[in-house]
Every structure is written in structure tokens, then in C-alpha cells.
Design a protein around this nucleic acid. Structure first.
Lengths: 256, 256
DNA sequence: GCACTGTTGTTATGAGACTACTAACAACAC
DNA sequence: GTGTTGTTAGTAGTCTCATAACAACAGTGC
């Protein structure tokens, strides 16, 4: 990994560029003067003093009031702890407030014809896992692509089955179906059109009233398919799509 | 807590000010259009679009491509996970690099007359815990102030005692000594001058070659004593201070 | 069907804050 | 006498904040 990547990461963890470079330089040196750090980090020497002082205030660096002044980093474990504690503190602070002001809309009973879009494989997966976890009666999950049956989803499905829900997995891929061979999870092969070449990525149906459908788009630069999911719960759209799915998944409907 | 505090926390977690305010507004609304968000968050309406798009790219908001466009936040749990995963990813990335370039200086055998300064109660405690955890033979910890015998330090001392090290606790405060009544930790009352009025906060001696001495300064604005620690390991200064301590802690010396 | 008004989504631009970077200098060490 | 140290000042660049403008569209009244 390049040092510039590490610097960028430390910047995203809350340090300025100079602070990050000084911190890394001190890790390399073990300890050193401003001049030592300036040479290794290529930070202007006059800026090393304030950057190191800021790091000291953060607890990431210790100072020896000698002549010249010497600096040393705290241990990596201590640095990690300090950054983690800062993160946890800000996270608690932010979300304590957010939880307090959050309006609960899920039980106002008003049906909204909402179809929501989620972009990016990672976020699609977050939404899928959330839908699975919130299911109360049944979950059906389908994908033709074994790579899209991730361990996180697999775990979430098992957890729901263990919680007493009806859980079904649909896939043309035998490997996907076999992952649940030891569980009380019903697996089956989907009928056409779901078994042909398709850009459908993943399909989820929960409780007979919620549905998610993802499609795979063009590869982005990292070589991973760009995935976009559309999902909806308790809407006419969801009902219609579920009807469509039901007529294709006869082997499941009798049980749900 | 004021909303501005929550906004500042979200900023420190990597969001811009507008993004944080849009996110909080959507939590309040449940879902809404740019106009709704603009009204609640007092963010200029034209800026709501790009802020919401950035949040969507981060996975924190979902978009409904309706007319007008509607936005909704992901659940608090999902938002926390996303921010945590980002933090963990940057932390791993930064420290993978740092661990790779870190010079191991602790075993180069070269004696340095280094005395290091740590400021701030929290950071002093980090250093104390680290010294305790790195001890190999013995640890002696002393403080007159029960508040400075924190649970973290208490736990660290017990862990070392269970690991077979000789552990001693020195305090004029009976409550501090009593916390170790059930452990194989030797406790004692310090002799003068350590038993009089003092600005000494905490004292640590590890392995007969490392020492830390903290002093309490003026209260800062939060009402907590400003604590500064000086510590040194394997130096003549440390040896001299340990000799001074040894002559005052006779009941310990015979065992270490 | 048309005119008018309000809304939407997009784009552009300047101000302010923060960080990066350079320069200068008094005091000091060697 | 020279080089180093620690501090301070100032400018440039970048990012975010904040305002303004506008084409296109939706809704409403006649």
C-alpha cells in the first residue's frame, strides 16, 4: 500500500494531511526531533511543531521537553484505541440525538405507493439484510449468482429460520441451493423466466407484503457489477409484484 | 442535546454540514421531498439535491425517483453499521501500513535518557495501562485519590497479578486499598512525603526499571484536574527515581 | 386550451473557513 | 560565524456554505 493511501485513511479518521504524515514519520523513526520528522515526512519544518502539538492533544504523540524537543508516537494499539474511542463517542452523540427525534412512521397505517431505490452492491445487501431481519412470518430469497448469496445473507436467512419463520431459497445454481442442505430451508429451482439469462441479481419477498428486486448493470471501474435494487413494502406495487412472483413459485405458495 | 452538537458529531464522522443536517431532517420526517427537507433542515433547497445524493452514495439515504423525488433515511442501525464499517476500513488501511513501516526501537539496546510527557487525564491513563500491560515481573501502582484508581487500571492490575506478576498498590485511601482485599495484591500505606497533601496524582513502577509520575494541575473548564504525567523506562532518570521510591516503599522492595 | 403561478431540478458564482505551503526572524547551540 | 530551533506571519488553494438564476414542468383558474 502506498503511504499516500495511509495518509488519506488517517485524514478520513479526522487528522489533517500534515498530522497524518507526521504521525507516520514518527512511527518510522521511533522518536525524533522536528527536523528528523521534517526530513522523513517532507512536511515543512515550521509546520511540524503545530502538527505534533495537535497530535499530542489527541493523545497520539508524546513530547519530550528537551533541547531540541523530541517527539514519539504512542503505540499502535493505543493509537487505534484513541481513534476508536473518538469514533464511538461521536457515533453515540450523533445517534442519541437522532433516536430522540426520529419519527416512527412505520405504524401510521397510511399506505404510500413508495418504491425505493438503492444503488451499489454493498448498500443493496444492507437493505436485503434489513428486510430479512424485519420479516415476521416468511422470507423467500432468490439469486442465480452464487457470489450474490453472501455469507451475511446466508447467516441472516438461517437466523430467521431458527426464529421460526418460513424460509425459502430459489436458485438455478445448485451450489446456492446446497448451502442450505442441512437446514429446514426449502430450496427450489425457479421456473422461467427466472431461470434464463437475466440481469436480475437478487429477489427477496418477505411476509407476503414486501419485495425487493435488484438488477445488475454495467461494471464500474473496480470490475464489480453495479447493482441497483428496487424495493417496496405494503404497497400496491409490492402486492402486484408478489402476485407475479407467486404465480412463478407455486411450490412455495402453499406454505406461506 | 442540541441539534448543532449532533451535526458536529456527524461532521466528525465524515459528513459535511449540509449532509448532516439533511440526514437529521430525514430522520425527523421519515421521508420527504427536497422542499420538505429544506424546510426542516434550513438547508438551501438547491443544496438538498447534492447533499442527498452524496448521502445516497454513502448508503445512508434511499431515493424514490418519483415526481417530485422523495428521499428517506436508512434505519439507524444500518446507518451506524455503515459509518462503523467505514471507520474500520480506514483504521485497518491506515494501521496496516503503519505496522509495516514501524521501526522496532524497543530492543535496539541503546539507552536513551528520555523523559516523556503525557498531558490529559485520559491519555495519562492510556499510558499507565500500557506500562502495566507491558510489565513482565512486577507492577506497583500508587495514588491518594480513589477517583484516579479507575476500573480500567484496576482491571489491568488484576490481569497482571493473575498472569503471575508481583503487583502492589500503595494508597493512603483505605477504599483504594480495600478494592484489592480479595486479590493476591499487596496493599500498603505510603510513608511521608507521599502521605501528605500532594499534587501527585499517580505513581507507577514497573519491573524495577520503568516509572511514571503524574501531577495534577489547575482545573480546566470541565472541572477535571489537568493531569500531566512524566514517564521513563530504562534510563538513569528512571533508575534514580525508582531508587528514591524504593527507599520509601521498604515493604515492597524485599519482594521485587 | 391557454395563461399564470408555483415548484422542481440543475447550474453557476462568490464568500468564508480551513489546510497547505513559503518566508522571515530572534534566540540559541555548536 | 554558522546552522538549528521554535515561533509567527502571510498567501494560495481547496472545500463547503450560501445565494442567485433559469429552463422545464405541474397545477389551477378561466
Amino acid at each position: 500500500m502506498a503511504e499516500s493511501d495511509a495518509v488519506s485513511s488517517l485524514e478520513r479518521l479526522g487528522l489533517t494531511g500534515y498530522e497524518a504524515r507526521v504521525f507516520i514519520a514518527l512511527q518510522k523513526l521511533g522518536s525524533g526531533t522536528a527536523r528528523d520528522v521534517h526530513r522523513v515526512a517532507e512536511v515543512p519544518r515550521s509546520q511540524v511543531y503545530s502538527a505534533a502539538e495537535n497530535l499530542e492533544e489527541r493523545g497520539l504523540v508524546e513530547v519530550q521537553q528537551s533541547n531540541p524537543m523530541r517527539y514519539r508516537p504512542v503505540s499502535i494499539e493505543t493509537a487505534r484505541s484513541i481513534l476508536r474511542e473518538r469514533f464511538e463517542r461521536e457515533q453515540e452523540r450523533a445517534f442519541d440525538y437522532v433516536e430522540g427525534v426520529r419519527e416512527e412512521h412505520s405504524d401510521d397505517g397510511e399506505e404510500q405507493e413508495d418504491i425505493w431505490t438503492v444503488r451499489g452492491q454493498e448498500h443493496v445487501e444492507d437493505r436485503i439484510v434489513e428486510l430479512i431481519r424485519e420479516a415476521e412470518e416468511s422470507v423467500i430469497f432468490g439469486t442465480p449468482d452464487p457470489d450474490l448469496m453472501t455469507e451475511t445473507i446466508e447467516t441472516a436467512l438461517r437466523d430467521r429460520e431458527k426464529a421460526g419463520l418460513y424460509v425459502g431459497v430459489v436458485s438455478v445454481d445448485e451450489g446456492v441451493r446446497n448451502r442450505f442442505a442441512d437446514d429446514a430451508v426449502l430450496t427450489t429451482v425457479p421456473p422461467p423466466p427466472f431461470s434464463g439469462d437475466t440481469s436480475i441479481g437478487r429477489v427477496v419477498r418477505v411476509d407476503g407484503k414486501g419485495v425487493l428486486l435488484s438488477v445488475l448493470g454495467e461494471e464500474d471501474v473496480s470490475g464489480i457489477n453495479r447493482e441497483t435494487a428496487f424495493w417496496s413494502v405494503e404497497t400496491n406495487f409490492a402486492s402486484a409484484l408478489i402476485e407475479l412472483m407467486n404465480s412463478s413459485f407455486d411450490s412455495f405458495d402453499r406454505k406461506v
